[in-house]
Nucleic acid binder design. Sequence first.
DNA 1: TGTACATCAGTGAACGCGCGTTCACTGATGTAC
DNA 2: TGTACATCAGTGAACGCGCGTTCACTGATGTAC
Lengths: 190, 190
Amino acid sequence: MRKSKHEAAKTRERILRAAAAEFRRKGIVATGLSDLMTAAGLTHGGFYKHFESKDQLVAEACAEALESPIEMMAAAASGKTRGGGLKAAAATYLSTEHRDAPADGCPLAALGSEIARCDGKTRVAATEGFLRLVDIIAGQIGKAPPNVARHQALVAVSTMIGALTMSRIVTDPKLSDEILHQAQKHLTQG
Amino acid sequence: MRKSKHEAAKTRERILRAAAAEFRRKGIVATGLSDLMTAAGLTHGGFYKHFESKDQLVAEACAEALESPIEMMAAAASGKTRGGGLKAAAATYLSTEHRDAPADGCPLAALGSEIARCDGKTRVAATEGFLRLVDIIAGQIGKAPPNVARHQALVAVSTMIGALTMSRIVTDPKLSDEILHQAQKHLTQG
DNA sequence: TGTACATCAGTGAACGCGCGTTCACTGATGTAC
DNA sequence: TGTACATCAGTGAACGCGCGTTCACTGATGTAC
């Protein structure tokens, strides 16, 4: 049954991707390793050939998942004038599409309160991803010295995460849209 | 073993309070009913004499927990001039004390991403609490027509929730303080 | 290059454990006469 | 007001289930000669 190194590496990647999606969809604690391995096309016993523990998988899946908003924001901002870049990034992050597809979106919004209770490795990964998002936004704030731009970006990213989270909690669809729209407007004009 | 109606009502209240604290401390999914009942000084079998299911308890505990930030913000804002009220409310919500005591703080920050996956009752409770927070903040924004103030408050509360959540995720204590401080500064001047 | 052997990816059963929920039971409380 | 009985808060054992983790095993892959 042994697989080639290349096959094994692809398997590991498949588990990681399944985890990154399932955690964001159902939550970290609520997602079992068995379901994850089935989603990756394997039986659950093989998990420990690739990862030391669930905690280690969580940390790596968190890092993997953070690539999604980073790519999303970087792509939206690229090739825009500075003000336009911030506007485009906010519009993408705060879109109804992002809200309605948590499994492919930002883990800080989909898993924020759970990540706060995770072990150090996961929180380090989340911190690094957050700082990369902050850097992308800071780079789009032209009219300010770099450390002021960084401070503004710290708040802007926090606003996006809070607004997206609340837009998913709220039961009134009109209110949900309103939260996203007003946050976007605020970030664009601020 | 039967207890008087008054005793039974006090027991129910004890379970609810234990749940509101433990959920915020450990997360909803990660908190078992057994631990909760023990924390309330009972054996786990009696739970269903007071609540229909864990889901129902979650909804009621969420509503109960929301009283904490509502009271916190209302108290901070009361008796202040309008600008001062917003400043005081933001300073309290975004304090290191609030960050370091999630079990007594805002459930939207402590449980946000989990609440987004809860059933309708819980999300309705969260929505109502959120709107009460928005109203308190909107009442502190003087220099704008009511619906503009409400829009600004929607964003302000989202910013507070996002910033508090991120301040708990981040592993660098300096960065954590910085997030709280910059968000507070932003809300105060904005 | 071909052969012998060690490695190890993946399987599937099993570990102990805690989960949410149910249930028969106890005995004090509340009610009806 | 006093007595007889129904109610029901709380107990503690048990339900089936899924959890994270371990393990003996299989057999193709990788390695050493």
